[in-house]
Amino acid sequence: MEDENQIEISFTRTWNSSLNDTGMPLNVDKRFQYMAISDERQRIMPTPQDREAGLVLDYPEAVMLTNPSNPELVGEVDDKYQYSCDDKDNRVHGWICSNPAVGFWMITPSDEFRTGGPVKQDLTSHVGLTTLFMFFSTHYAGDNLTIKLRDGEPWKKVFGPVLIYLNSVSVEQDALTLWEDAKEQKTSLMLINGVQSVADY
């Protein structure tokens, strides 16, 4: 149910891990069109339909936008890998909807649980209103980072902390202030968790 005070984020079916389903049963309102990864990396994003209608380049993730819904994006190449960043910088990223002004953020106040160290790159957010939290991955590093366990070998690892943060502002306020608020939330969580900022290293 949607009204001026809420946006629907709902599960479309029950998740069953035994089915090895690659698609998540989550439906998120598609009005989010502005993505922010850092102060320097923010933009209006193409839609999944813009990508589908575009020209696939040398690999399927890279698509030239030939007839996007936003004419300012014509000729641009969209590729989920262009939104990657170093783990040390991957503290907050997500999406802004301007009407109503709502933000959807993935906040990770610490990266000490991640494999590969602080300068390993990984994925963040990308087209399709995708916002990722990568527990561990081989992106940009290869199989050396794959967890390899022998039969019956016990293994335990704690991932996190992680926060999915939703915020909003009134229609009179600039929707981009949602990014500033998400960064403040990240800083608060870093202080609570005793994490120094990258600038302190």
Rank of each mutant, 00 (worst) to 15 (best):
Ser197Leu: 12
Ile7Asp: 08
Met64Tyr: 00
Gly160Gln: 03
Ile9Trp: 09
Gly160Ser: 01
Met106Ser: 06
Lys30Ser: 13
Thr108Met: 11
Glu153Tyr: 10
Ile96Cys: 01
Asn167Asp: 07
Trp179Leu: 01
Arg41Leu: 10
Asp143Ile: 04
Arg41Tyr: 08
Pro60Cys: 06
Leu176Gly: 02
Pro100His: 03
Val102Phe: 14
Asn70Val: 10
Asn27His: 08
Met106Arg: 03
Phe104Met: 13
Glu2Gln: 12
Glu61Ser: 15
His139Asn: 12
Leu65Tyr: 04
Cys97His: 01
Phe113Met: 01
Leu166Tyr: 06
Leu191Glu: 14
Thr108Phe: 07
Thr146His: 10
Phe159Ile: 15
Asn67Leu: 05
Glu184Asn: 13
Pro154Trp: 04
Asn27Gln: 12
Gly54Asn: 02
Ile164Lys: 00
Pro161Phe: 00
Asn193Phe: 12
Gly142Pro: 07
Arg43Gly: 12
Asn16Trp: 08
Ala101Trp: 01
Ile9Ala: 10
Phe104Tyr: 12
Asp39Val: 03
Thr146Phe: 08
Gln49Trp: 06
Thr22His: 09
Val119Ser: 10
Thr131Asp: 04
Thr12Asn: 03
Val198Pro: 01
Gln42Leu: 00
Leu123Gly: 02
Gln196Cys: 08
Pro71Leu: 06
Thr115Lys: 14
Asn70Trp: 09
Ile37Leu: 12
Pro68His: 08
Asn27Ser: 15
Asp79Ser: 05
Thr115Ser: 11
Arg31Gln: 05
Tyr201Val: 09
Phe136Val: 02
Ile7Met: 15
